[in-house]
Design a protein around this nucleic acid. Structure first.
Lengths: 359, 359
DNA sequence: TGCGTCAATGCAAGCGCTTACATGCACCTG
DNA sequence: CAGGTGCATGTAAGCGCTTGCATTGACGCA
């Protein structure tokens, strides 16, 4: 027979193999401490509501048993998780890593756990991740940039999940955000470049679909060119590429093959710029003598490479910390509906010089 | 009366304010699709067990309602989460980021979600994180290095959570691990250094308490020195410092102030080495002419800096992917009890040269 | 036509916790 | 000393899901 293994023999129906691989539950603790589960729960959550004697006894048992509350059950019963989520495009990019670290530290101070997911720059994947984080009970979400599927926003709205969009500040966007104005920042840098007499500009951009930061940075360059009476269509040479030092190097090489050669190569971020720079060295092209190079973000390598990279400094840590505070306030119902614009700073270092022949 | 708000008026007992801010539940879907919750559940989990007609109807409602299963409830009922956890010392270190990315990709392929936590190199914090991840139902854990509190291991054992220790391979350790032998690797590099005639060695180490990788790397240098008849106590000058380019620079400066000066500065990782290198440039010290410098890890900047860094290449991606496979196998009950040693490779680039006066 | 079979679906018992409410007890007040 | 007060604790009803088992009904076969 198949079902004769039912315990018709009167053995205890609860613990199949008592201590062994059984995870202790609240009830186990309660039983062993001689109190009710409610009391144990209170010891864990609102210790001040339990008399010291009892509390000590309970905590001792908790220790002995190595009891850890089951998060799912807890979330289910309490309807909150003290968990925030963050979805970043990739962990490999230092700028997110750093901001996230600050974000997490700030949350940790407030007893909140952070769940991190990465979307690999794919809006569809991001949608899935949002869904996953919501299902996991994230009380609030940190998102990067404004670009995402309509459904993603719909989901967020329907569930009424507080979220903040970071790494960008676009005055036109209605959503709560904290960051800087990528377009304006890049425009500022480009203005400096133009002031050095450059007229033929190469631009190495990160992929712009689904990435409003990249798009805005590109637009910023165009803005500056137009302001200087140049035509981006004619005088700007664009290469779009994936993230990575090697990719930057390849793009730079391609740009150098053009005639006439650009006298400056502006890059969408420091990593691409670092790649460009190393390629320049490899090709024996003097920087900034023959060609100037600029980056964006001011990550650690910017200062490290030689010549040191002219770039735009972005306050990653403040962004992360600020985002955490915003979210915390939102969750607490304090109506911080104001987006925050953080200042960026152009760091003129060594890779930008006057256009050849200008001097 | 207090309890007169019971719905004695025959109104529906379920949805207090129907669509509004109510999150749809399985039951909502079921009701609306005219099936039982069991069927909806099956549609979501084992679609092949539901006839196509019903399934379509249900899925349509799922769409309409924007239903997403409550993870906690699901975990509670199903007793598994399809979630793995990883605890890394810090997200800011590129070597972890990269390995982790690969780890995550491999898990994603298998329908598993990754939860990441960082311990900031603190064993106590790590213990808390382990506990948190377990409570969250992590089915398996990725840990870095062997150093952790006794309680951490006790916890893992008691709960019978599969875990693998990565970034290290220590033949003496009984635990399942995947990585490389830090000690042996550094010994190999140090042997090369000694072969170049260096006798006075400066060593910039990451903090060694709670970090067996750092400790092992240090030991590796000592091993090599002893093998060459040197006395580490006399001929090795050690500085221990935090992680960061700036810290590496400071340490290098301190080392250079010593008399006699070391002729080579070996660093526990590339970031410290990069800092040392930039400080050398700042101080006008020729590398490798006056002082040689070595790193460890072979992260992207190693090749980027100039002169390019001599370092030890570590297969981060393979490590991440391998760890994922190990864990997956463990969870499936396949007894992969064999630790994996991954090969490292010494990358002789430009920062290591003969000791001055040796030529 | 009657019966067995089997696929599709429903029923209902929990999973481990939190918490509103009930209970019991010590102590205080008039 | 009866009755009230308030604190510490217990009782038990779910939270939203999965899943073993029961039920249903369509179909094939004798």
């Amino acid at each position: 027979m198949i079902s004769d293994d039912q315990n018709a023999d009167g053995s205890d129906p609860a613990s199949p193999r008592s201590q062994d691989d059984m995870v202790p539950t609240l009830e186990d603790v309660a039983r062993r401490a001689g109190v009710s589960t409610a009391t144990v729960s209170r010891c864990l959550n609102t210790p001040e509501r339990v008399v010291s004697d009892t509390r000590k006894r309970v905590m001792k048992v908790v220790q002995e048993l190595g009891y850890a509350p089951n998060f799912g059950a807890r979330a289910l019963a309490a309807r909150r998780t003290n968990t925030f989520g963050a979805i970043i495009p990739t962990m490999e990019n230092a700028i997110f890593a750093r901001g996230l670290q600050a974000f997490q530290e700030e949350l940790g101070l407030n007893g909140i756990t952070l769940l991190v997911a990465s979307s690999s720059y794919s809006p569809e994947l991001e949608e899935a991740q949002i869904s996953a984080l919501i299902a996991r009970g994230a009380d609030a979400l940190l998102l990067i940039g404004h670009d995402r599927t309509r459904q993603s926003y719909a989901l967020l709205d329907r569930r009424n999940i507080p979220y903040v969009v970071a790494w960008v500040f676009d005055p036109e966007m209605p959503r709560l955000s904290i960051g800087f104005d990528n377009r304006k920042a890049m425009q500022g840098l480009a203005a400096q470049v133009l002031a050095e007499g450059h007229r033929r500009i190469g631009f190495i951009s990160a992929e712009r679909t689904g990435n409003d930061r990249a798009r805005d940075r590109y637009k910023g360059v165009c803005d500056a060119m137009r302001a200087a009476g140049l035509d981006p269509d004619a005088d700007l040479q664009l290469i779009e590429t994936e993230y990575g030092i090697g990719k930057g190097a390849q793009a730079f090489e391609k740009l150098m093959a053009a005639t006439p050669r650009p006298t400056v190569v502006m890059c969408g971020n420091d990593v691409l710029a670092a790649g460009a720079l190393s390629q320049a060295r490899r090709m024996g092209i003097a920087v900034p003598g023959e060609v100037s190079i600029t980056g964006f973000d001011d990550v650690e390598i910017a200062e490290l490479v030689s010549p040191a990279l002219t770039t735009v400094h972005v306050p990653h840590r403040e962004m992360g910390r600020g985002a955490a505070r915003l979210l915390l306030a939102l969750r607490a119902g304090e109506g911080t509906r104001e987006s925050v614009e953080l200042p960026v700073e152009i760091r003129l270092r060594e890779t930008l010089g006057p256009a050849p022949g200008t001097a």
